[in-house]
Design a protein around this nucleic acid. Structure first.
Lengths: 188, 188
DNA sequence: ATTATCTATAGATCTATAGATAATGC
DNA sequence: ATTATCTATAGATCTATAGATAATGC
């Protein structure tokens, strides 16, 4: 039953990766410790050795991982505009589990508060930093204010689009925000 | 035990009003039939006569009510800009239970799908209509595209602000979007 | 007689813990 | 000897249903 320390670390990794995806897909309350453990081939009893503080610890660590991953994805993009275009794509619309943690988890985090909210806030700051390092018009960086406007409008549009049962309406919300930043001429 | 038909209708109203508020505050999975019934002084057994199709019916009807209420609130505002200002206020930030159903419920609805998503989509369309009837610069109405951009950016900013444990960061997200629409000079 | 509500309960969850097990790592 | 995991279980939920109750409304 006992496994090597290396395997044990690997098991914790597997739990975090699975949690990160499953929380984005089904919400923080949508997945229990039992189902999560089973999804990586473990039982739920052993979970509490890996996460002695229980579910809140798991959620915090999984959210930190999710922002790591998502910031790394943005880092590969050349400009803020290309981030917006990729964000508001039908690929991202249909794929919650590997997508941005804002439209999927922000409401859950607002309800959870505590350590979860602090980890999340740290992730938001990291996302802002990534955008602010992108070029914007003449400037070699994007202002914090504009980065915030972009994040809010992208996250809102994708979240609304996912809630809509009307695909045409969903696409209109997404393309309206793409257009907002394509037609934009300010360099704040 | 049996009450008058009038009282019975009133009881259903009370359940819907309570559900509308509690869902915005705690999420759709955050309140059970038992707790909801108790909050209006009923037991959960009688719930299924009022809502024969169960929780999904309740959620759909409660969401329709929420949009009714929220659209009525917007209708009292003079301009699209005044809607934005009221939306991104600390009052709205702190008061989920009477606030807009986009930042609180859109992610839950995306997960729920089905009839809930259809009711929600209808509500989104009604919100668009209310904004589009507001003046915008020279024009006596606001374009659908601009209404969508406003809704997405407002909903995103408020949702992110509520998830943030840093109040200063929360306010910055909100004021960035207020500024986006105050500095705006286009009339699409 | 009809029916709105209540009581009681079934069957599935959920988080968390206790103690057993068995392999690692000293 | 230590410890990562498993088994079993406690105690709280959750949605939903069956049948009892008692007041309405014919």
């Amino acid at each position: 039953m006992k496994v090597t320390k290396e395997q044990s670390t690997l098991n914790k990794e597997k739990i975090l990766v699975a949690a990160s995806k499953l929380y984005r897909e089904h919400g923080i309350d949508g997945i229990g410790i039992g189902e999560l453990s089973k999804s990586v081939g473990l039982t739920h009893g052993g979970f509490y050795r890996q996460f002695p503080e229980g579910k809140e610890q798991l959620v915090s660590e999984a959210i930190a991982r999710t922002f790591d991953e998502y910031c790394a994805h943005w880092s590969t993009k050349r400009s803020a505009k290309s981030i917006v275009k990729g964000y508001l794509s039908s690929e991202h619309l249909q794929n919650k589990q590997d997508g941005c943690p804002m439209p999927t988890l922000a409401a859950d985090v607002a309800r959870a508060g505590g350590a979860v909210s602090e980890t999340y806030t740290d992730g938001l700051r990291r996302m802002l930093t990534v955008i602010s390092e992108k070029k914007d018009g003449d400037s070699d960086h994007t202002s914090e204010e504009k980065a915030m406007q972009m994040m809010a409008s992208m996250a809102g549009a994708l979240m609304i689009a996912r809630a809509s049962s009307d695909q045409a309406l969903a696409k209109k919300f997404m393309s309206s925000v793409i257009k907002l930043w394509n037609d934009d001429t300010t360099t704040a």
